[in-house]
Amino acid sequence: MRCRKCGQKAVINMRQHRLALCDEHYLEWLPEQTERFIKKYEMFTRYERLLLAVSGGKDSLALWDVLWRLGYNVDGLYINLGIDGSLDYSNQSQRFAQQFADERNLKLINLNVHEQYGESIPEIAQRTRRGQDKTCSICGLVKRHIFNQSARDGNYDAVITAHNLDDEAAVLLSNSLDWSLERLGRGQPLLPAGGGFVRKAKPFCRFYERESAAYTLLRGIPYIHEECPYSTGSKQLFFKQDLNRWEEHMPGTKLRFYLNYLTALDEGAFPQRQESPAELDQQRCPICGQPTITGNTCAFCRLFEK
């Protein structure tokens, strides 16, 4: 297979775009597309301070590299979850994140859940009652809380995550199966700031997971290949595998599923929350000051209630 731009040997074929590219043109194409999505969804500008959630994995390091090359002002935030799984998972991934930042002279903020709250994620999960995918749901809650708090404390204009299309499509599938209209109303690539939440953007939301991995490999960026031990058997992984089987037989299925959803979202197919900023402002957690739906102690602070 040949590169569409120069006719050299292609290193990647994106069937959903009918586009094959060589390494040189792929490394150009992905940042160009990222820039296009940032503009299209009016995510952020080069004058703003951005905080990127960095996990040490392929997606977040690829995104950091791309934003840095495009000239955006991005600091990283690494949250050490205290997950070991006999492979020292959290510390290992932290080392990849730190190495990346050091090599490019970028600022990485490191936070440690155990140091900060006295317990690691698995320890909190052990102690509290939650349903299926318990560790992951607590982990998600803690990460969202710390991320928003850090962005507010550091006066960042927007927080960035490296969610790719496979991540978004898996969540979309899960929410669709549940007919969770409220969640379906919140799947935009850009969520504006409001009620104590910092603006949130996902510049990689239109790339397949395979594409961010290819970028990381072709750029020669070292990243953690091991999976978090709690991801085995997770619902998200299950949905991703199914989506990929459909994609195999019908190329473009994932892309259409997600893009047509965004169109439906734009056309108002799902209910949007209607609180005014003033109303939301009154709904603050009395302990941490972050927004809550109920106005009582937030779900994060409740984890640590005695």
Binding site: M1, A10, V11, I12, N13, A20, D23, G57, K58, C136, C139, D166, E209, R210, A213, A214, L217, L218, H225, E227, C228, Y230, S231, T232, S234, Q236, L237, F238, K240, Q241, N244
Partner: peptide, 29 residues
């Protein structure tokens, strides 16, 4: 898929003696 450290596309013919290293790209959680 990588052959000798180089990414290859799915239409590549496998040759005698090839060692093809696969990288799983789907992560969950």
């Amino acid at each position: 898929a990588l052959r000798d450290g180089q990414l290859i596309t799915e239409d590549e013919m496998l040759r005698k003696g090839d060692r093809i290293e696969l990288v799983a790209v789907i992560s969950g959680g």
